[in-house]
Measured scan of single mutants.
Amino acid sequence: MMAYMNPGPHYSVNALALSGPSVDLMHQAVPYPSAPRKQRRERTTFTRSQLEELEALFAKTQYPDVYAREEVALKINLPESRVQVWFKNRRAKCRQQRQQQKQQQQPPGGQAKARPAKRKAGTSPRPSTDVCPDPLGISDSYSPPLPGPSGSPTTAVATVSIWSPASESPLPEAQRAGLVASGPSLTSAPYAMTYAPASAFCSSPSAYGSPSSYFSGLDPYLSPMVPQLGGPALSPLSGPSVGPSLAQSPTSLSGQSYGAYSPVDSLEFKDPTGTWKFTYNPMDPLDYKDQSAWKFQIL
C-alpha cells in the first residue's frame, strides 16, 4: 500500500520538471525561470610600474599592434585584453584634452560664430520673369535699313540677281523696263511654242516681248482663266512685280493683265486636223540634229 502513496517519478516537459499528477507549474501565473544575472567585471587597478610601461608604449604609438600589447601584458602581468581596453580609454582621454585646449585658446566670443544676415524675399530687387527677354536684342539694338529709291541700282540687283547668272552684270533701268511683257505680243502666236536658250531668258530683255519668248507657250493655258476669275487675268510678269519692288498687295496686282481676252486664246483648236509644230532653235543647249523629232501629229 505504501508504494502507491509515494509520488511517481519526475517528468520533464519543455525542460520543466513536473512532479506526478501536479500540474501547477503549467499555470499561467507561474513564470518561467529567468537567466542568472551576469556579474559585473571588477575594475582593474594599475600600479605605478604598470602605468609607466603603458605610458611609455603610448608615447611611441597610440595604436599598438597585438604583438606589442602581448609583450607589455607579459611585463606588467596583466591579460592582453586589459591592455587593449586601457589604450582605448587613453585615446579617448587624449582627444578630450585636445578639445579642452582648443576651447581655452579661443576667445569668449569666438564660440558663437556670427551668422550672415538672411536676406528677406521682398527687399532684394530681383529681375521680373513675367516678360520673356528678347534673345536677339531686336527691340533695343536692331534698326531696319532704310528703303532705297525705287530706281536705285541696288534694288535692281536684289531683284534680278536671283534669276540671272553670276557672270552677267546687273540690268540697267532701261533693260528692266523691257522685262514687262506686252499683251499683244504674248497673244499673237498662241499655238507656236519656241524653246529659246537659257541665257536669253536671263539677259535678253527682248525675249519677253517677242513671239518667240519663253513664256509665249504658256499663254494658251493662262488666258482661259479670265472668265472664271470674273475680271482681268493676273500676270506674273506684269508691271512692277518684276520691277523695283516685289512687295505689292494682291489688290494692286488684280488690275494688271496680259491684255484683252480673245477667243483665239482658248485651248480649242480651230482646225482639228492641224498639227502643233515646235520651232527648233539652233541655240538650244539640247543638241538634236534631227528636226523631225520636234513634229508630232495630233490624233
Rank of each mutant, 00 (worst) to 15 (best):
L51N: 14
E268H: 11
L74P: 14
V157N: 01
V226Q: 00
G20F: 12
V160C: 00
Q50F: 15
Q175R: 13
T251V: 09
M225C: 06
S169G: 09
A293F: 13
P244Q: 06
P107S: 06
H27S: 04
V160E: 00
P165K: 05
P31A: 08
S249M: 13
K38H: 05
T275Q: 01
P36E: 03
P250N: 07
S19C: 14
V72I: 09
Q99P: 11
R119W: 01
V30E: 07
A15I: 14
G209S: 06
L51P: 14
Y63I: 13
R37E: 06
Y191V: 02
Q256D: 05
E53K: 12
D219N: 14
T159N: 02
S12I: 14
F269D: 00
A17T: 07
N6Y: 10
P250A: 08
S254T: 05
Y63L: 13
T187R: 08
T155F: 15
D134M: 06
S204W: 15
P153N: 02
S19P: 05
G178F: 13
Q28N: 03
V131P: 12
G231N: 02
Y288I: 09
H27M: 14
T61R: 12
Q101P: 11
Q50L: 15
L253A: 01
Q104R: 13
P244A: 08
P145N: 02
Q28C: 09
V242W: 13
A207V: 04
P282K: 09
C202P: 02
R82C: 08
L51C: 12
S212V: 10
D287N: 11
A198V: 10
T251H: 05
D287L: 13
A3R: 03
G122P: 07
R41D: 13
S241Y: 13
P127C: 06
A3D: 00
L218Y: 03
D140A: 01
L222Q: 00
A189L: 13
P236G: 04
P147T: 05
V23D: 01
P135E: 09
L218A: 02
L186W: 09
D271W: 13
N14W: 15
T155I: 15
N89H: 15
T47M: 12
P282L: 14
E80M: 08
P127G: 09
A207Y: 14
A73M: 13
K75Y: 11
R69D: 14
S12P: 04
P165D: 01
A29V: 12
A158D: 00
E53G: 12
T187Y: 10
G151W: 13
S245C: 07
A35L: 11
G243I: 12
L18N: 00
R126Y: 03
L136C: 04
S223L: 15
N89M: 15
M193F: 13
L246Q: 02
E168Q: 05
Q111G: 05
A117M: 06
G122D: 02
W276F: 02
G8C: 12
A192P: 01
L25A: 01
P21N: 05
Y208Q: 02
S199D: 01
E70R: 04
S245F: 13
D134A: 01
L57I: 09
Y63Q: 15
S257V: 10
K118H: 03
L18Q: 00
A121M: 03
Y67I: 05
L186D: 00
S150L: 08
S216N: 05
G178V: 12
C202W: 13
K295S: 03
Y191K: 07
R69Q: 14
E80H: 10
Q101E: 02
K295N: 00
L54W: 15
F87C: 12
A247I: 12
S12D: 00
E42D: 05
K289T: 04
S216T: 07
N14H: 13
S49M: 02
T187I: 13
Y142W: 01
L16N: 00
F58D: 15
S182E: 06
Q111R: 09
S235I: 15
S238N: 03
P263T: 05
K120V: 02
Q101D: 12
C94K: 10
Q28I: 14
S235V: 15
Q297Y: 12
L246V: 04
D284K: 13
T273Y: 11
Q175E: 03
P33N: 09
E70Y: 10
L51T: 11
A73W: 15
N89C: 15
S152N: 08
P220R: 11
C132H: 08
F278I: 15
D219I: 11
S238L: 08
P33I: 10
S254Q: 05
S124R: 05
T47P: 15
S167V: 06
T129F: 06
L229E: 01
A35D: 07
S257C: 06
A247T: 09
P125S: 09
E173K: 14
L237H: 02
V226I: 11
Y261W: 11
E55T: 07
Q97R: 10
C132E: 09
P282S: 02
L179Q: 04
G8S: 09
G8I: 12
R119H: 02
K289P: 05
I162V: 01
L229I: 10
G137L: 07
R126E: 01
G122V: 02
K93H: 15
A29F: 11
P285Q: 06
V264L: 11
P125I: 10
S223P: 05
A260Y: 10
Y261G: 03
L253C: 02
Q100S: 06
I138A: 09
L136F: 05
A260L: 13
R40T: 11
F296C: 00
R90M: 13
P197A: 06
S34Y: 10
